[in-house]
Write a protein that binds this DNA or RNA. Structure first.
Lengths: 189, 189
DNA sequence: AGCGTTGATGACAGCAGCTGACATCAACAG
DNA sequence: CTGTTGATGTCAGCTGCTGTCATCAACGCT
């Protein structure tokens, strides 16, 4: 495997997911990941900021997609419905990737360090959503709370979708979760 | 400062908060923290699992308090109202500690690594709350969603409280945030 | 007072994550 | 064919973190 093989980033991401799955995150060394990808440790750190980031390459696109869908919702839509539109767009992105999502999620769930990284990515999404809602004229703290609600639905919905049978579509699961959140918050009083 | 000075943990926690505030988290070395506390690096790691954990010593008690209040809510209370009772109990704990909370929050907000740690502590609280709600007979996904909603209110409410004037009590801020969440989720349809 | 036990701390070696600096090499333009 | 460019390799070094063993203060027992 020569120096200039194509797709170095992708090879390292796949190698990392394999090794994290097989031997665990902590037991895996960055040098091992790089070696399996036919590269060196130094090159790994040129592509990924740290050992965790290699599993979160797509999070930027996900956030962009989510934000764009919320920003593009009809002006007349209530904030929570704009977020629902965002969840729908996100759900499309996961179509056909349930197996990969499961593999990745299993590793993250088993590793606190990776869980931390996932949480800060979700927090970044929440902040971006809140900003988008503010640009739509939503005041604080409504904007932040709506964004947090959307992320809560995404978190719970994602886990249910990942655990579910192939037939259940993510968009449907997300809608159910949002309805459940509505019911539950309306519960008291 | 001799070997057996009392309250080694507290001294290190205070030294860490000072140094993180003055020079930044990354620029502060664990050896420096230990030295300011009159101890060695090795002793620091005997008391705290890592360089971040030194700022989160109280998170366990906070979670316990929250959970106990939810578990102790009247059986007739709706899930969201049980969580509201928990928020109220938590708010009592912060009474008179706004200045300390501000200092600590400023450092955490400025440091992604610390933000990650805070987020996983909140996720732990969310999971504990969901478990408590399940024990109260709440089914999934309602339990997890209610717990996430409670944490969302806590996050948004905390920031507002920390930024607010001395007169505004945390319990009041939390109640307002919860009302706002109710309004916002009910918004669509 | 003397002595052994216990628990916290210090001292040291070492690995892994991560970075800066510089050399090397493939591809591409002209 | 040559100079440039950008990705990669190599090496040195710091810091976070851990295992291991020695040291020391406090306390109880005789």
């Amino acid at each position: 495997m020569g120096r200039w093989e194509p797709n170095a980033r992708g090879r390292m991401a796949e190698a990392a997911l394999q090794l994290y799955s097989e031997h665990g995150y902590e037991q895996t060394t960055v040098a091992e990941i790089a070696r399996r990808a036919g590269l060196t440790e130094r090159t790994f750190f040129r592509h990924y900021a740290d050992k965790r980031e290699v599993l979160f390459a797509g999070s930027g696109e996900l956030e962009e997609l989510f934000v764009r869908a919320v920003a593009g919702a009809p002006e007349s839509a209530a904030p929570i419905d704009a977020v629902a539109a965002g969840l729908d767009a996100v759900a499309q992105m996961f179509a056909g990737r349930r197996e990969y999502a499961r593999r990745r999620h299993a590793v993250i769930t088993a590793t606190p360090e990776l869980k931390e990284r996932e949480l800060i990515k979700l927090a970044s999404m929440s902040a971006a959503l809140a900003g988008t809602l503010r640009r739509r004229g939503v005041a604080e703290p409504a904007a932040s709370l709506t964004a947090e609600a959307g992320i809560a639905v995404f978190k719970v919905g994602f886990e249910r979708w990942a655990a579910a049978a192939e037939e259940r579509e993510m968009s449907q699961v997300m809608r159910e979760a949002l309805d459940e959140l509505r019911a539950v918050t309306a519960g008291g009083r």
